[in-house]
Structure formats: C-alpha cells, structure tokens
Simulated scan of single mutants.
Amino acid sequence: MIIERLSQEHRNIEKLLAILERELEVFDRGNRPDYEVIRAVISYFEVYPEVFHHPQEDLVFAKLRTRDPVAAAKVGDLAGEHHKGAERLRRVACAVENVLADAEVLRQDVDTIVRDFIVHERHHMMMEDRDFFPAALKALKPEDWTEIASAVTGHKDPLFSDVTEERFDALRAHILRLEQEAEAERK
C-alpha cells in the first residue's frame, strides 16, 4: 500500500537525519566528521525524496484535495513545504562544500543551517504521519489508490532496498554499524 511505503520511507529518512545529527555533533566538537557519509546523505536527499517520495505524496494530496478539501486545508501547502525543504537542503549542501573548500565559514553558521534542515524535516514528516496520511486513508476511495498506484514508478529506494546504488555504499555501511552499536547498547 502506498501510505505504508511512504511511512516506511519516513522511518528510513529519520535514520539519515539521525546520522546527519551525529556527524554534526562531531563537527560541533571541533573534530572532523565523516564528510563522505554527509555528502552521501545530501546526495540521497537530492535524489530520492525529491524525485520519488514527494511526487507520490503530491499525487495522494491531489486526490485528498478532491475528496476532502477541509482535511487537505488542514495539511496545508504540501508542495510548498517540499519546495522549502529542497531549499534548506541546498543550503546544507552549500555549507558543507564551503567547509570542505576551506572557505571562511563560521562553525555556528554551518550548525544552524544543518540543524534547521533536520528540525524542519522531522516536523514535516511528523505532520504528514499525524495529519496527512490518516486523512488520505480515511477520504480516498479504492479507485483513487488504484489510480495513484498506476501513476507512480516502481523505482526502488537507492539506499534502503535490494537495488542499491554504489554511491550509497559508505552510507549504508555507516547505518548498519550504527544500528549494530545501538543493538549492542540495548543488550
């Protein structure tokens, strides 16, 4: 089901936000974070949410607007939110590239830009999970879901599926290592 896949993608995105947050903490302590991992996270956000995840949400939202305009109004300007998220991501990418190019950049400014992205992404996904997805599940009819499913591509997530892309290998290994460390801490 489309909403289940979108929710799973949110959980995957949260893993990446947590990694970005950990790397930012390393940076904030004055140490060198893993820039290969940071760049891979940025690259993932440039590709998957923008090209696949958000367009699917936009299709669902368009149907919701037709079926339940009041619920859609409560969700707000979803496309606008996605656009603002893309702008914040561009600022993150620019800040990271400036650091790597040894440009004059304040550590606090980089921290603010990256934290702003993380906070807004989490808030946005929370709103979708709390308001948008339940409203869509309630309002849309089976034929709406069929129509949406026929319009979406069957493209697999390049990081969290069996069809993985080589450029995400370091990031995938980093995620697995963090999950193993978290599991070991729970025992």
Rank of each mutant, 00 (worst) to 15 (best):
G154C: 11
A86V: 13
D144F: 06
G85P: 00
L89C: 02
G76N: 09
E121S: 14
H83Q: 11
K138E: 07
L176N: 05
E4R: 11
P55Y: 08
V163C: 09
V105A: 08
M127E: 15
H124N: 04
E46H: 12
R29E: 15
R32Y: 04
L20T: 04
D144P: 07
F132Y: 09
N31I: 00
A18L: 14
R32F: 02
K63I: 01
V96L: 06
R29A: 13
L6E: 01
E4Q: 11
K63C: 13
V70F: 12
P134C: 08
A72L: 08
L16N: 00
E4D: 11
D144Q: 11
F117I: 05
R107L: 10
D129A: 07
P49L: 06
D109L: 10
A170S: 09
P33W: 02
L159Q: 06
I19M: 04
P69A: 12
L24V: 04
Q108E: 14
G80R: 10
V152N: 01
V51F: 09
V152E: 04
E128M: 05
T146W: 01
A149I: 06
A136K: 01
H10Y: 06
H10I: 11
K138Y: 03
I118K: 02
D169S: 11
R167G: 01
L17T: 05
P134A: 11
A86F: 06
V152M: 07
I19N: 01
E36C: 05
A62W: 07
H83N: 13
E9Q: 10
R172T: 03
